[in-house]
Design a protein around this nucleic acid. Structure first.
Lengths: 224, 224
DNA sequence: AAGGCTCTGTAGCAAAAGCTACACAAGGCC
DNA sequence: GGCCTTGTGTAGCTTTTGCTACAGAGCCTT
């Protein structure tokens, strides 16, 4: 996880900005911006992807849905990063293997497949960016897999709250949403939260979790 | 999962062979072959990686170990494929984030980091190979994550046996090994196998599982 | 203010998975 | 053959997670 963080420096947006600044690339003609005010599903599983996505503002959430209807977040795409899964599909003409959803107030740039492939062939910076983005994703997925195997739900929940409340001290999210991220159900989240509340680690509000004692929470996340 | 399969055509070994055949690359000087007769741990978590690994024969297994000591397989690297995680580390000077183990009778070629980086900068085929290998890995990891979220142990076990016994009709593996792959314990595997035996889907031997009725097994793997 | 919607709290039972403990079987080695 | 190691079968208990059901609280709309 620290590893993955240290990889996050090469920002897709900067690369594209620089490229278009130099002028010799036909970049402007390609990138089109889309803005999403509220939560919206952008790609459905099985969709054909028409281009590479770059997150300008906000965040994208890539998730899967089980036959039973339960959602589970696979990973997030943060501002400045490309949606490498889309690249994946572009390079191999595949269908997108998951769902993608925008968080509220998210802005996404789209570069047509063909443009991206041309850029990749001619621009070392784009080659690096691509490899880099894929690497980051691999790290995130491995980290997620590892956590699922070695932590139980309680620990994963504590960790999730801790990570996503950083700075603010609270996490604006309903318990159903939390459940969808961790691949479980609302009632289970409620049950676990009840224990954390009893431990005075957090406080629950409508639509939010307030972190009371971060170290207490960290302890819950750390060991069983 | 069908997606991942269709990605597997670009074989690392062929690319390197071709490159060294053309002669203008200093490839021979780089690749050194290692042979492993039996199960052996090649990379430990946190190790610094000294080069790119190409599997010539056999198979590599990438896995994680939880604090409790339980293993869980993240994915396999098949003949002709590169260990992209190692590439990852090469490009970003990171430590390897998991353990790697060779199966019996496995042959692995190693290309020093520097050589690989040079190749990547100059050879389009290597660039493609790299992106391709990373893409395949991303698909495999996503598939694994999705399965963990949507299938229970019984279904995952059935699927695992089915996949790994293809053609032969049996799976040469102890129950402890099975447990390590699926991230659980021997007793649980034994319990699940007992049910499958009662259903006449499989038969258990010492060190092996024999598939009796593949469709029966497929049914167990398919739904709950 | 009334009604409706969404979110939360709680209980209780069912199923899944993990853990401990032990008996027995198969194969290798001396 | 006897011993040792490794692998398997089984039982019973605990913990975790999932599922069903319902009550109440907060917020918005009309």
């Amino acid at each position: 996880m620290d590893n993955a963080g240290s990889l996050g420096e090469l920002r897709a947006l900067d690369v594209f900005r620089e490229l278009s600044a130099t002028g010799q690339q036909m970049l402007e003609c390609g990138m089109q911006l889309n803005h999403f005010d509220e939560l919206k599903t952008i790609i459905n599983k099985g969709n054909t992807v028409s281009g590479a996505y770059v997150v300008v503002r906000g965040r994208l959430r890539v998730y899967s849905i089980s036959p039973g209807g339960n959602e589970a977040t696979l990973y997030f795409i943060n501002p400045g990063e490309v949606c490498i899964l889309a690249l994946n599909c572009i390079f191999n003409n595949l269908q997108y293997p998951a769902w993608v959803q925008s968080e509220p107030d998210t802005c996404v740039g789209m570069i047509p497949s063909l443009t991206y492939r041309t850029l990749f062939q001619n621009e070392p910076s784009i080659q690096n960016l691509t490899v880099h983005a894929l690497s980051v994703l691999v790290f995130r997925l491995m980290e997620e897999l590892e956590e699922i195997h070695s932590l139980n739900l309680n620990e994963r929940l504590a960790k999730f709250i801790l990570m996503r409340s950083e700075g603010v001290g609270q996490l604006r999210m309903t318990q159903s949403e939390l459940a969808a991220h961790l691949g479980t159900t609302r009632e289970v989240i409620a049950k676990l939260l009840r224990r954390m509340v009893a431990d005075k680690a957090v406080k629950t509000l409508r639509g939010a979790i307030v972190v009371e004692q971060a170290e207490q929470l960290a302890r819950l996340a750390g060991q069983r």
